[in-house]
Nucleic acid binder design. Structure first.
Lengths: 160, 160
DNA sequence: CCGTATCCTGATAGATACTG
DNA sequence: CAGTATCTATCAGGATACGG
């Protein structure tokens, strides 16, 4: 089984990320910690309040506060104060579009964990709300083909 | 825009991962560090030798050694000694099926980084070797529908 | 070429206590 | 409810030096 990606073109694509502009590395600057992922997991599943983040992600309040501030700083979450009539002010953290767009990464991680780290295929699964079928992450090309791990090439972007 | 996943069924799915059997959390036990991801990135792009891992992932040798050992321990990489006739023994680290299956997660992270952390859409891109079209990560259901972020439900697995 | 040993710094994160 | 302050332990990771 072949697991590595072919390099293509005259330039070695590797040089394009060794200059520290690899976007995987950049992404990891923001979400490389366990707690950041778990906070985001909760955000995807509807958590908005400080205490709930700390409790459900099972991190201490100081850690929850740090990650929430950082994620707001990075534009992944937005903090929103609001007041229901007659009640006192509440704070909510909600996903921005940027934050929400990280969801496939979380799903990919969950899918991998379900396959390889759990005897029963994981405790929960995602389903398509329209048809009820299980959801999975796939690599697809712009022409609509499903792409296998042995059908990949890495190319340098021309316009730079 | 709606960014959160609906919960479905009589049981709150949340209880299924709060008991620390969330497979996202388990996955993060293995690959929550920046260096682990970068080592794996290199493995996907064909690196097999110790020095190359350290240099290309831009981590120190001790860190490379630690991550490589851990990843072998976790069954993500296999260490393989071999000797070309007339030459001395070499060591190679290669992805196992388990390790290779994490690739979509890396691609998802790269795709997100390309969209949100780089002005030019990222330094490199993946293409389908058959047709040359760019590759992206997608959520798809078993019935073949492309699934949007607002069409998701989280359900507890029945058989447990 | 393929690592290990040591030392050091800073970040991650828990526990606990306290405030508006 | 939504945090902050402090203190402490552990871990990630760099630098340097060394050995098979």
């Amino acid at each position: 089984m072949k697991h590595t990606v072919r390099m293509t073109g005259s330039l070695d694509p590797r040089s394009s990320w060794e200059a520290s502009n690899c976007t995987i590395a950049k992404a990891l600057e923001i979400v490389s910690t366990r707690s950041a992922f778990l906070i985001l997991r909760e955000a995807f599943f509807g958590t908005t309040r400080f205490d709930d983040f700390a409790e459900r992600a099972r991190v201490s309040e100081p850690v929850a506060a740090s990650r929430l501030h950082e994620l707001v700083q990075e534009g992944m979450l937005e903090r929103e104060d609001y007041r229901e009539p007659g009640k006192r002010t509440r704070q909510h953290y909600r996903l921005t579009d940027k934050g929400a767009d990280l969801f496939p990464t979380l799903v990919a991680l969950m899918q991998w964990g379900n396959r390889w780290l759990d005897d029963h295929g994981g405790p929960v699964e995602l389903r398509h709300s329209d048809c009820g079928q299980p959801v999975e992450v796939q690599l697809t090309c712009a022409a609509g083909h499903r792409v296998g791990p042995d059908e990949l090439e890495l190319a340098v972007h021309h316009q730079r």
